[in-house]
């Protein structure tokens, strides 16, 4: 449980990162800057929600050290998700 939850936290971060970075590059390439903001914010909300659920489940399962590891990884991932998404609020999409 703990190991799987830890890995899942990493996967959520990676998918968010890939989606945000790749999606923005793609949207700009095909000339649709307007979808960047909703994409980034939407992806971030979903990622944060998933990380929260993951952390709660990992905590509940009383996984000892590994449960703590999963919660910690979810927290670092959430921090990175918020940080990485924030620039979209301040800068032009393309």
């Amino acid at each position: 449980m703990g190991v799987a939850a830890s890995l899942l936290g990493i996967v959520i971060w990676a998918l968010h990162f890939g989606l945000v970075y790749g999606g923005q590059a793609l949207a700009c390439e095909v000339g649709r800057p307007s979808i960047v903001m909703p994409l980034v914010i939407g992806a971030s909300v979903v990622a944060l929600a998933l990380l929260l659920v993951l952390a709660v489940v990992a905590r509940r399962s009383r996984g000892g050290f590994l449960g703590g590891l999963a919660v910690g990884i979810a927290a670092f991932s959430a921090l990175a998700v918020v940080w990485e998404a924030a620039p979209v609020l301040a800068l032009p999409a393309c």
């Binding site: 830890s6 990493i10 971060w13 990676a14 990162f17 945000v20 970075y21 923005q24 590059a25 700009c28 960047v36 703590g68 590891l69 910690g72 990884i73 670092f76 991932s77 990175a80 990485e84 620039p87 979209v88 301040a90 800068l91 032009p92 999409a93 393309c94």
Partner: peptide, 30 residues
């Protein structure tokens, strides 16, 4: 936990070596 986090987060940084290549500013900001 910090070791594991450094490990995976460091895979999301590579473009900071490419700031001067003309990539759009929002991408750089990510």
């Amino acid at each position: 936990t910090a070791l594991v986090a450094t490990g995976f987060l460091s895979f999301g940084l590579w473009v900071h070596h490419m700031y001067a290549t003309g990539i759009p500013s929002l991408s750089l900001a990510f």
